[in-house]
Simulated scan of single mutants.
Amino acid sequence: MARREFTKTTKREALKRSGGLCEAVGEWYGLQGGQRCNAPLSYGVEFDHIDLDANSKDNSLENCAAVCIDCHRVKTFGHDIPVAAKTRRQQDKARGIKKRKSSLSHPYLKKKLSGEVVDLRTGEVVSR
């Protein structure tokens, strides 16, 4: 289940609290520890969950940060997406769900750009 978004009221209050400046703080956002970005939010604002739990359902003002687009991108791609992917892999492993093996997982088969699958030992086309 995906987490819900912040309400309009929460977003308005977070933006008001920020004073129009990015509230991103620390290494998650690509900054030095304890450093705040303070970029003007006039170029765009996004609202980020402060709680680092990928499955957080806390949509309160205390868990909402008004951040600039650049800081949000750094945290999303550098932390949030990898952590969520790792969580899914761990859950799948615990449930016995395995990754589907490709039909080309055999070490002697190679797919050419033309789409043909060739057996490297014999040079024969196995499929088109």
Rank of each mutant, 00 (worst) to 15 (best):
Q35L: 07
L61G: 01
V125Q: 05
H49K: 06
D92Q: 12
G78L: 00
P40A: 13
R95V: 14
P107R: 08
T87M: 14
L120H: 10
Q32G: 07
C37V: 03
V25P: 01
G19V: 02
L15H: 09
N63H: 11
Y43V: 06
L21I: 03
K16L: 07
S114F: 07
S56I: 12
F47G: 03
Q91L: 14
D119R: 05
W28Q: 11
A65F: 10
K101L: 11
D70H: 10
G19E: 04
E46A: 02
G96H: 11
D92F: 07
R95G: 09
R12I: 08
S42N: 13
L15S: 11
G78V: 06
K11R: 03
G34F: 09
S102C: 11
R100A: 13
D58Q: 04
E23L: 01
S127F: 10
V117G: 00
T9C: 15
C71T: 03
C68H: 00
L52W: 06
C37D: 03
K93S: 12
V118F: 03
K16P: 00
R128Q: 13
V117E: 00
A54T: 12
S42K: 13
D80G: 10
D92N: 14
D58K: 01
E124L: 06
K101F: 11
K57L: 13
V83N: 08
V83Q: 09
G30R: 01
V45I: 04
T87S: 09
M1Y: 13
V25W: 00
K93W: 10
G115S: 06
G78M: 00
F6P: 01
S114V: 12
D48G: 11
A39I: 10
K86A: 11
G26M: 00
E13N: 13
K99G: 07
A94Y: 10
R100Y: 14
M1S: 08
L52I: 08
Q90L: 12
T10C: 03
G44E: 05
F77W: 09
K75Q: 02
S42W: 15
E124T: 06
T10F: 04
L61Q: 08
L61Y: 03
G19M: 06
T7R: 13
S103F: 13
L61I: 05
L41R: 02
V67G: 00
V125M: 08
K75M: 01
C71D: 01
L21T: 12
T76G: 04
V67D: 01
G96F: 03
A85G: 09
A94H: 06
K93Y: 13
D51Q: 06
R100L: 15
K16T: 03
D70N: 03
M1E: 11
Q32T: 06
D92L: 14
C64S: 08
E46K: 07
G19Q: 05
N59G: 07
K86N: 13
F6A: 05
S105T: 07
T87W: 14
V25K: 02
A84W: 05
V74H: 01
N63G: 07
H49A: 06
H106C: 06
K16Q: 07
R36Y: 01
I97R: 11
D70A: 02
R121D: 10
A54G: 10
M1I: 15
T7Y: 15
K101C: 07
R36A: 07
L21K: 04
W28Y: 15
V45S: 05
D119A: 08
G96V: 01
R128V: 05
G19T: 05
E27N: 09
R73L: 05
G19I: 02
